[in-house]
């Protein structure tokens, strides 16, 4: 994470359904329109498949499904945020990118204590901006981990 003066940072905000989320802008490489993905056999439901990103094979994670929402039927209006997660590059399917936020660290409030595992796994904090609530999510766990396939 790049910290500017007064430990301010830039976040990229996006929508999934009625909810707003954001991730650190430094992890986002590019944003592109939805294109049909090639289905991968025996993959979790939130993995939409793979697409060709200039010669590299890019897995597409349906972030709505990953976060436990009703997955959308993707249209041309949906976008894919290409993000760096560790050493891998992943495409995240979201409804739309809404904003670039410049915030200081103290504007990020701790995640409210909720029971949802999903929230604990992904949400790192919440922001209140102009009456909106935006959840800051971490991308470390968006890809499925290598769990043994049940025989």
């Amino acid at each position: 994470m790049i910290k500017h003066d007064n430990s301010s940072r830039e976040l990229i905000a996006f929508r999934i359904g009625e909810q707003e989320f954001c991730v650190d802008i430094m992890s986002v490489r590019e944003i592109r329109g939805w294109a049909p993905a090639t289905v991968l056999p025996k993959s979790p439901p939130y993995v939409r498949g793979v697409i060709n990103l200039r010669g590299a094979i890019l897995p597409i994670v349906d972030l709505a499904a990953r976060l436990g929402f009703q997955p959308p039927e993707p249209t041309v209006r949906h976008v894919i945020m290409v993000a760096q997660v560790g050493t891998q590059v992943v495409g995240l399917l979201v409804d739309a990118v809404s904003d670039i936020l410049s915030v200081t660290d103290d504007a990020i409030k701790p995640t409210p204590d909720v029971a949802s595992d999903m929230a604990k796994t992904f949400v790192r904090g919440v922001l209140a901006i102009e009456g909106r609530m935006i959840s800051l999510i971490a991308l470390d766990n968006v890809l499925p981990t290598l769990e043994p396939i049940a025989a």
């Binding site: 993959s43 793979v50 094979i57 992943v90």
Partner: peptide
């Protein structure tokens, strides 16, 4: 093309191509 570099090994699939 490798599937593993950005994803993981998929059983039954050796690799991908474009």
């Amino acid at each position: 093309k490798s599937l593993e570099s950005n994803y993981r090994h998929v059983p039954g699939i050796a690799a991908a191509t474009i």
